[in-house]
Amino acid sequence: MSSMTTTFADLTTIGVGGPISSFIEPADDDELIDSIRRADGGRIPLAVIGGGSNILVADEPFDGVVLRDARRGVSIVDGGSTGSGGNRVRIKAQAGCVWDDLVDATVSRGWHGIEGLSGIPGTVGASVVQNIGAYGQEVATSVRSVRVWDRAALVVRDIEASRMGFGYRTSMLKHSMYQAPGVPDRRFFPTPRFVVLAVEFELFRTGYATVGYGQLAKALGVEVGAEMEPARVRTAVLSIRGAKGMLEDARRYNLAAMRGMRAQSGLAAALSHQKGLDEESLADRHSCGSFFVNPVLPLRRGATLPPEAPRFEAVLPDGSPGVKTSAAWLIEHSGFARGFRVTPQARASLSTRHTLALTNRGGATAEDVAVLARTVAAGVLSTFKVDLMPEPVIVGVDVP
């Protein structure tokens, strides 16, 4: 494809963003690392992206290199057969593998450990940067090690899970892009210092998955802590996410800029799952996913929230105890209903199904999304004195 005609709107789930000077898809380790080294050596802005699901980029041209990893292999490292002993299996997935293709492949074998993360858009590489989580699971609990290219030391490193600095929707990889929370590091932004090459996971090869989340348990008709076949858990998770509009629009993989990214079996299943949805429902999927992270507050600050506000035990970045509350609840109770638009004609709105998703209703620009984000964040700050922190990587756009 011609790099001059590729835009971030072509590559992202929210479908906004300007044209790209150079778009490349390395097919092997050497090409990937060489491409990064050339960009860094020439001090050319570099954006390494996966599925484009957790990024919001400005409408202006991106005068740099956008790299999307085309290495999508998955291999069994150890424990894949009954005769190998034990109940664990170790697999290695290259960073460019679409995350839900990996989940589908493991669940189809009866393996469990990541089934609760079904339907999350993006790639394996992005999964560990963000420490994705949903329905009682986080990717961190299944990661054994991460292979990265260190852009500062110019070496390949293998980082054990215990050294990854995993936290709520974060990791040491994500931290390496910022000088302070929300303050980009000019040298390593919007791409971390450590670019993921591959991830080794350890999953359970036999047995049943534990249902560890109330909403999921209710959907399955069981109690929290019940054990269930991984395939049934995956089906329930996809159904819940679909009802909230928190699955991507699988039609994007038929576009020229996205073609070939997904395994055909996974794409066929995703297209079948959304068959029959009207355009309004599909527009709810044109988002960055959850736009704001759930705030984690000091205990004293959490105690000032209304009694009915959701509260969960949490740990602050400094290791002290805190309380996590729901960003969606704060948004809704600040007067922003599902489907809220800044003006009746606005092309960006809150999802009609979930207030945590900011969506492109058709023809929206990055600035349209930014105006909506600023409006919502200002409303929450005014009502509850809580600052909302964006979850996506924000490039060239003024949001809170």
Rank of each mutant, 00 (worst) to 15 (best):
residue 84 S to A: 14
residue 85 G to M: 02
residue 86 G to E: 03
residue 87 N to R: 13
residue 91 I to T: 12
residue 94 Q to L: 14
residue 94 Q to F: 11
residue 97 C to T: 15
residue 98 V to S: 11
residue 104 D to P: 00
residue 105 A to K: 10
residue 108 S to Q: 13
residue 113 G to L: 08
residue 114 I to E: 00
residue 118 S to L: 02
residue 120 I to E: 04
residue 121 P to A: 13
residue 126 A to W: 05
residue 126 A to V: 12
residue 128 V to G: 13
residue 129 V to L: 11
residue 134 A to P: 01
residue 138 E to P: 13
residue 139 V to K: 00
residue 140 A to C: 12
residue 142 S to D: 02
residue 142 S to F: 02
residue 142 S to C: 11
residue 143 V to F: 03
residue 145 S to M: 10
residue 148 V to L: 12
residue 149 W to H: 13
residue 150 D to V: 04
residue 154 L to K: 15
residue 154 L to R: 15
residue 155 V to F: 08
residue 155 V to G: 05
residue 156 V to F: 10
residue 157 R to S: 07
residue 161 A to Q: 09
residue 163 R to C: 08
residue 165 G to A: 12
residue 165 G to W: 08
residue 168 Y to M: 04
residue 170 T to D: 14
residue 172 M to Q: 07
residue 173 L to C: 10
residue 175 H to E: 15
residue 177 M to E: 05
residue 178 Y to Q: 11
residue 178 Y to K: 09
residue 180 A to Y: 07
residue 186 R to Q: 13
residue 187 R to C: 09
residue 188 F to W: 15
residue 193 R to K: 15
residue 194 F to Q: 13
residue 194 F to W: 15
residue 195 V to K: 08
residue 199 V to L: 02
residue 199 V to N: 00
residue 200 E to K: 00
residue 202 E to R: 11
residue 202 E to A: 01
residue 202 E to Q: 12
residue 207 G to W: 06
residue 208 Y to R: 14
residue 209 A to C: 03
residue 209 A to R: 02
